[in-house]
Design a protein around this nucleic acid. Sequence first.
DNA 1: AAGATAAGGTGTAATCTTTACACTAAGTAA
DNA 2: TTACTTAGTGTAAAGATTACACCTTATCTT
Lengths: 231, 231
Amino acid sequence: METSLPKFDSVFSVDCVIFGFQENELKILLIERNQEPYKGRNALPGYIVKNDESIDDAAERILYELTGLRGLHMEQFHTFGDVDRHPQGRVITVAYYALIRIDGHNEVKPVTNFARSAFWQPVNKLDKLPYDHSKIFETGFQKIRRRLSYQPIAFELLPEKFTLTQLQTLYEAILNKKLDKRNFRKKMLSYGFLKELDEKQKGVSYRAATLYRFDRRKYNKIFQNELNING
Amino acid sequence: METSLPKFDSVFSVDCVIFGFQENELKILLIERNQEPYKGRNALPGYIVKNDESIDDAAERILYELTGLRGLHMEQFHTFGDVDRHPQGRVITVAYYALIRIDGHNEVKPVTNFARSAFWQPVNKLDKLPYDHSKIFETGFQKIRRRLSYQPIAFELLPEKFTLTQLQTLYEAILNKKLDKRNFRKKMLSYGFLKELDEKQKGVSYRAATLYRFDRRKYNKIFQNELNING
DNA sequence: AAGATAAGGTGTAATCTTTACACTAAGTAA
DNA sequence: TTACTTAGTGTAAAGATTACACCTTATCTT
């Protein structure tokens, strides 16, 4: 299958691990490939960096072309450069992650026809991915897990208004362990960047929980200080 | 100066930020370049990755060729890919750092003639470096600083036998702040991976301090657990 | 309307960690 | 012997983390 493909010398590409949270599950964004190799297989959104664009710019462009998502804050986390990681030749790939709120405003849909479709896949229902994409995903997952333990990045993933239980469920999904409800709430509220709203959850068949909103201004102030203390 | 140089299409390179500790100063390893561009200037050890080697392997080889150092544990920390970061064309560079004990067994000396010399330069006496090497250094420095705050990596930099004051001075150099002597000692000793020796510091004109040795076995055990707790 | 169901919401005591702080001890040099 | 310089040590207060269980409130069912 792969032998008839053209050989090229060396290129860089970008691969994206985009995390979202939907129906109480942590998910990542996959595309269905519409090109050989691995045509028809699901993979991380990724493509080749152009010669006249920085890798950061490439990451933005590629994510947009393959999924329609734009303007995310993406962060580089590792570069994968094994000789045989790509069947067509030497491809070194820079991996990025981002966290995004899945809502009505960001339907995912490829813009070019390199991808046939884009969709959210729960992280614990991931099949083996082509190339070394499974390894890339695992590395990225570890990075956000570690990062969550010193920076409350989870808000990026939640809707604008959320309940404390949703927040906790998300933490549990990322950290992969149960947390104590009272301690979790105490700690989160103690940060002071959660604003309690005069609104309750709707459409549940039990007692509705209070909604909260994330106050980015306060968060930045606190996080700034933390940086200064450590560095 | 740069216009007469050959243009190439796109390549990957590796740059190394190697930290050492000598005479109570934190230093990094620089080379004097023996090739255009920037011939005669001091720069980070770095060179082009071959087409048939992984970037990790390339990092090892390049460091050896330019400085004579071998077998270090190097860790990738960031990839720099701005379009114009290299005057001759598109060069994306993967940056690595390592921590090393400077002692009699690792004289630094280039093996190829791409570098005229290799030497240790105190981090707070660094001039502006060519390419974006200053930025690469800064990023690497930030990474080890952050890493030090959750993992006691400083031992890599010290001689086999060291005093607690040396250890503290090193911490202070990396974190760039004064630490409390009593609290520092209490904390370091509480980890349990420092072994007190029956030996004292020699050649000082004041009361000699007790020497300690780092117990890697115990350290690994503790660090393993920490990983499990957080992940 | 009463009862069942299901999640929401709350406080305290014990333990551990971190911080702040200052003097005596020991060795060398003059 | 004295002066100098760094080594080495303890404690109390404040803060953070952990473990733990019950009542409340809304909805749904009968």
